[in-house]
């Protein structure tokens, strides 16, 4: 569904991705793992079009999306839950969800305000609050809800549970499990290897802007040296 081949991305003159390659298959949960500063968020930025890659190629459902503006990539059906949530603080929860809603996947049973509020009942209680008035966990639920309201074909979560309280994390993992069961294709970035191994089908490890390892959850959990070498665990 999503395929990156030898992607090279720069911040100005500084190269961050050095021929990054990976792929996400339809209906699977894929993870991108690596230590801080290895290029995970840069990879996400290159996929969604907020960063322009200068080399290689990014394809979504066979269509080249590298070099296309972010709004066009989103319209093709890639929804992002960004690092740091980035909900609109000056819009209410309802406005955050409804104002940007779309059915980019052309789903016959699209996500609606009601279904998102059913998915995250906590948001219903906070519907008229401004985005800035929510806790970190509520903001993350809102960010996921906002991405779901686009009815994406691929959902990307950058640092899905970073900085959240343990109970909220569990809630988020449960919801992601539900999304997986519904058949949604997901690309996950997180540091919680145990949870990732539990939920995901395929993992990619990034080190200094290159994909250095790929495999399934069994391979990831069994190889202790892998975690020590690339993830510092």
């Amino acid at each position: 569904m999503l395929e990156l081949a030898n992607v090279e991305t720069f911040y100005g003159t500084i190269q961050v991705l050095f021929g990054m390659s990976m792929r996400c298959k339809r209906g699977e949960v894929t993870t991108l793992i690596g230590r801080n500063g290895m290029g995970k968020t840069t990879t996400v930025g290159s996929i969604i079009g907020t960063l322009e890659s200068r080399g290689g190629d990014i394809r979504f459902d066979g269509e080249v999306i590298s070099g296309r503006p972010a709004y066009e990539v989103a319209q093709l059906g890639i929804g992002l839950v960004p690092e740091g949530r980035q909900v609109f603080p000056n819009l209410s929860v309802r406005e955050n969800l409804v104002a940007t809603a779309a059915n980019y996947s052309g789903s016959s049973d699209p996500w609606t305000l009601d279904s998102v509020l059913e998915f995250f009942p906590r948001l219903r209680e906070r519907l008229d609050n401004q985005g800035s008035q929510l806790s970190g966990g509520e903001q993350q639920m809102l960010a996921i809800g906002r991405a779901l309201m686009l009815n994406p074909r691929l959902l990307i979560l950058d640092e899905a549970t970073e900085g959240l309280a343990p109970l909220i994390r569990q809630e988020i993992w449960r919801r992601l499990e539900q999304l997986k069961q519904s058949g949604m294709t997901i690309l996950l970035i997180d540091k919680n290897i145990d949870e990732l191994a539990h939920i995901a089908d395929r993992h990619f490890i990034i080190e200094k802007g290159r994909m250095v390892w790929q495999g399934d959850s069994d391979a990831l959990t069994e190889d202790a040296s892998l975690k020590a070498r690339y993830l510092g665990i």
Binding site: A74, F88, A99
Partner: peptide, 17 residues
Amino acid sequence: RVIVGSKFNEQRMQALG
């Protein structure tokens, strides 16, 4: 709402399509 949201984070609004 798109205009108001863009004031705060234009890139995010673009990533929403």
